[in-house]
């Protein structure tokens, strides 16, 4: 597990991270969410040691992070970049050798990865000669080339077509499933919602929420339920402790502090009409995110 504790960082007089703390669990996909300029990229750079924190600690399984820990992280920066005029396989080998791999081991691993990611083009082609989508794949391969033991990916899905997103997802989930911690940021909240085990939300450099998506839903708002019957539901407004969020004739969405209260609504509904459907309403991450960042 990688733990960030009270990380602070300023650029000049502007403080961009305020006492930021969160965990990246082993074998878990952790989504890192925040609006533009909220400090995600700075946090990732500090995690990688590309930037230094002004104060705070990063630990790996309880011990302070070392350069060799950092070297074992696969990193994909937000601003993509590899050498445009260098053959694809050559740059993978070059990057891998900084991590102590031999040329032969790096080449073998690189060819395997390009194959897994289904690169369209020859490994000996220059980067600029393949399509943008394929360049993205090479970028992902560059993050994985040295057999990392953790992954930190800044917006890994931006610029990928749906098929490439799926393929990348496969690689990432199988990586996390092997027990490694994976942190990635994304603006595509639907994707994050589908993928992640844990979520970290920051706003203006402050941590606003961290935990599993379930925990977050419970933390941030009263649970919601929806009810569909065959008659008007105006009476729901009169139920004790219940507040109606949305009402449309025979359909209602309401909050209730506990499931007992919600069931009381259901029981009443059954006495006045027949119920077509009743159940908890999952708050979409999108709304949760807006709620959390605007709070």
């Amino acid at each position: 597990m990688i733990t960030l504790e009270n990380i602070n960082r300023s650029f000049g007089s502007k403080q961009v991270l305020h006492d930021l703390s969160f965990d990246i669990g082993d074998g878990r996909m952790t989504g890192f969410v925040g609006s533009n300029g909220s400090g995600k990229t700075t946090t990732m750079r500090i995690l990688l040691g590309v930037l230094a924190a002004d104060s705070g600690h990063i630990t790996v399984d309880g011990a302070p992070i070392t350069p060799s820990h950092r070297s074992a992280i696969g990193y994909m920066p937000e601003e993509r970049g590899l050498y445009p005029k260098m053959p694809i396989i050559d740059q993978l080998i070059y990057l891998a050798r900084f991590h102590g791999l031999t040329r032969q081991a790096a080449k073998k691993r690189g060819l395997e990865l390009l194959d897994q990611l289904d690169l369209k083009g020859e490994p000996t082609d220059t980067l600029e000669s393949v399509s943008l989508g394929n360049q993205q794949k090479v970028q992902i391969a560059a993050a994985l080339i040295h057999n990392p033991q953790a992954l930190v990916l800044d917006e890994p899905f931006s610029g990928l077509d749906p098929a490439a997103v799926e393929r990348t997802l496969d690689v990432l989930t199988s990586f996390a499933a092997s027990g490694a911690p994976v942190l990635f940021s994304s603006h595509q909240l639907d994707l994050v919602e589908r993928l992640v085990d844990d979520i970290v939300i920051i706003n203006d450099g402050h941590l606003v929420a961290a935990g599993t998506t379930e925990e977050l839903r419970r933390q941030r708002s009263l649970p919601e339920w929806t009810l569909q019957t065959d008659s008007d539901l105006g009476w729901v407004r009169g139920m004790p402790d219940v507040s109606v969020v949305e009402l449309d004739g025979s359909w209602a969405r309401f909050t209730a502090p506990s499931s007992d209260t919600a069931e009381a609504v259901l029981r009443h509904a059954l006495t006045v009409s027949s119920v077509t459907s009743f159940g908890p309403h999952e708050v979409a991450l999108n709304r949760l995110f807006q709620e959390v960042t605007q709070a």
Binding site: S71, A72, R97, F98, G100, R109, N147, Q149, A180, P181
Partner: peptide, 26 residues
């Protein structure tokens, strides 16, 4: 950080190349 090595070449476990090795690579 996980100690499980995920991928094929377990022998190719990474460690950061030293100062002179890295300069040599550049």
């Amino acid at each position: 950080m996980s100690t499980t090595d995920t991928n094929t070449a377990a022998s190719a476990r990474s460690h950061r190349a030293g100062f002179t090795t890295a300069i040599g690579l550049v």
